[in-house]
């Protein structure tokens, strides 16, 4: 795909990624966040952080279907940063609306509530990845090390899904959908790795013979 199409598409995708926030802001101004607005804001920002994380993780497997989908890689950083953006809004609801900026309450939460511990951990990973998402950081770290660091996104995604399972009440199974999607995305990588190593073996055997 020509460069100018990718650039044009970015101008469309970027505002689209802001739509979930726009909906929340609109609901806030029209007093339609529901009976428990704090819960609505918390849930929506959390969902979108997870969704964007999954979308950014879907780029690589989809790209591998065909050579001509290679341009998709140019959207991965933006989507990943939007995951971080919504995760920041999500953690802000906790810092502000739930803890009222009380550091003691927050420290207690991180230590005592497993779902917060794991959620906070996921956010820290995203923070590190966002901070090293620039070209400058890639050069500074060196491609290989950067790649290894950014594989932590898998850990963040798994931690995010665990965070979701741990906050829902006993008997509620709503997190199963994101769990299945994440499982498929991780499995796709495993399948790819196996196929790649098999292909390499064949190549080695062929050259040896």
């Amino acid at each position: 795909m020509p460069n100018r199409f990718v650039v044009a598409l970015k101008w469309i995708v970027f505002p689209l990624c802001l739509v979930p926030l726009g909906v929340l802001v609109d609901q806030g101004f029209t007093d339609s966040l529901g009976p428990d607005p704090v819960a609505t804001i918390t849930h929506q920002t959390g969902f979108w952080a997870l969704y964007f994380l999954l979308i950014s993780l879907a780029i690589t497997p989809i790209r591998r279907f065909h050579r001509r989908l290679a341009w998709l890689i140019r959207f991965r950083r933006m989507l990943g940063l939007f995951a971080f953006f919504y995760a920041c809004l999500h953690i802000t609801t906790w810092i502000w609306l739930f803890s009222n900026f009380n550091a003691h309450t927050m420290a207690h939460d991180v230590v005592k509530r497993p779902f917060i511990t794991v959620g906070f951990f996921a956010w820290l990973i995203l923070l590190a990845l966002a901070a090293t998402s620039t070209l400058w950081a890639i050069r500074k770290l060196g491609g290989k090390r950067w790649l290894w660091l950014h594989r932590a996104v898998y850990v963040a995604a798994i931690a995010g899904v665990i965070h979701y399972w741990w906050i829902v009440k006993t008997g509620v199974r709503t997190p199963w959908k994101v769990t299945v999607v994440l499982a498929i995305l991780l499995l796709a990588r495993l399948v790819w790795m196996v196929m790649e190593s098999a292909r390499k073996n064949r190549v080695t055997v062929a050259t040896a013979a």
């Binding site: 806030g28 428990d36 607005p37 739930f98 906050i167």
Partner: peptide, 22 residues
Amino acid sequence: VDHPRWSQKTERVIGAPFWKAS
């Protein structure tokens, strides 16, 4: 007495604006 998921120290008042619901 704490709950593993919800802090029982505060509560959200249903129907209140989000910035002063606690």
